[in-house]
Design a protein around this nucleic acid. Structure first.
Lengths: 163, 163
DNA sequence: AAGATCGCGACGAAATCAGCAGCTTCCACG
DNA sequence: CGTGGAAGCTGCTGATTTCGTCGCGATCTT
């Protein structure tokens, strides 16, 4: 796929333990992804070089990524939806197949009345319909799906900090 | 709230028309939010200053934001969930109330068997339980909720490009 | 048609980044 | 205990990038 790979792709469940300094660095970059290393260093009490090394390592490890995020509705994707999926048999291969689709930007395994949730980004209704009916429901192991078409995005933040 | 505000907070439904150059710039920054302006300029055929001015405008307009994103599970939030909510009466005030909660990082109005979807980020089970039972279900207008606790994040990308 | 506005390219000054060497700390191991 | 090694931090230097500003040309405005 043309994607550069998202968080949790490198070490799937690595659960890298983060010390206080790295968490503080992440919080700084959650506020502004382009904040200079020196400014971050001043805020967290490290030298500029140390911050740079840590940031690079966090990126390499896949713990975080620094990217531009947009509201898809404002950049030409007029239809978005969340799809709840019930699977029979192994969930993993279905999750993998979903993750391989370019229009799917988010896949999560869940407990509850769905086994998987996937967020879809489409150009129009026709595209969305084709994706759900022809490609997602056709995946082996998919028992049923339920779609929630997005009407309005109300909140989208990335600054939840760390603990 | 302590949040800096997400996409679509400034001009809610602004739908700013983006020309090809701005779209190309956004795509560059979706790959790497720290890519230098000069490199972006070379890729999209503009000068460094032009890229810089356009990026600044896109940020000011709220069309995009450049931030660090992480898998919350790796930074100390052990419990995440999506909550589907059925509302009676106006949806807007409920959406506003949800958006005001710090633990809620994502709120969207949907068509389908839920009126709203909200993503929650919590520190532990107790925190999650308290949030759903005491604060979300107690909101006026909330008829019922259904929770999907996250077991494993499989894909999370922001590089869907533009159209 | 003159004037105003907007976006872009150009350029210099200042800030930032990248790589490297040296130092300290902390363990593991003999 | 003492030593080797790894990891992390700092300070340094040169290269790169960012930032403010200016002038130009195209497009609108009146």
């Amino acid at each position: 796929m043309g994607h550069s790979g998202g968080v949790a792709n490198r070490d799937r469940n690595a659960s890298v333990p983060l010390d206080a300094a790295s968490k503080a660095i992440i919080e700084q970059l959650q506020e502004d992804g382009r904040r200079p290393y020196a400014a971050i260093g001043k805020a967290v009490g490290l030298s500029e070089a140390a911050v740079r090394q840590r940031v690079q390592k966090l990126l390499d490890q896949g713990v975080m990524q620094i990217v531009a995020v947009t509201d898809p509705l404002t950049v030409g994707f007029t239809r978005q939806a969340m799809v709840g999926i019930r699977v029979e048999g192994d969930i993993e291969p279905v999750a993998d197949a979903l993750a391989a689709l370019d229009e799917v930007d988010y896949v999560v395994c869940t407990a509850g009345s769905f086994d998987l949730l996937a967020e879809l980004v489409c150009e129009d209704d026709e595209h969305l319909l084709e994706l759900i009916n022809k490609r997602i429901r056709a995946l082996p192991g998919v028992r049923s799906t339920e779609s929630f078409v997005y009407l309005k995005l109300r909140k989208q933040t990335y600054t939840w900090g760390t603990r």
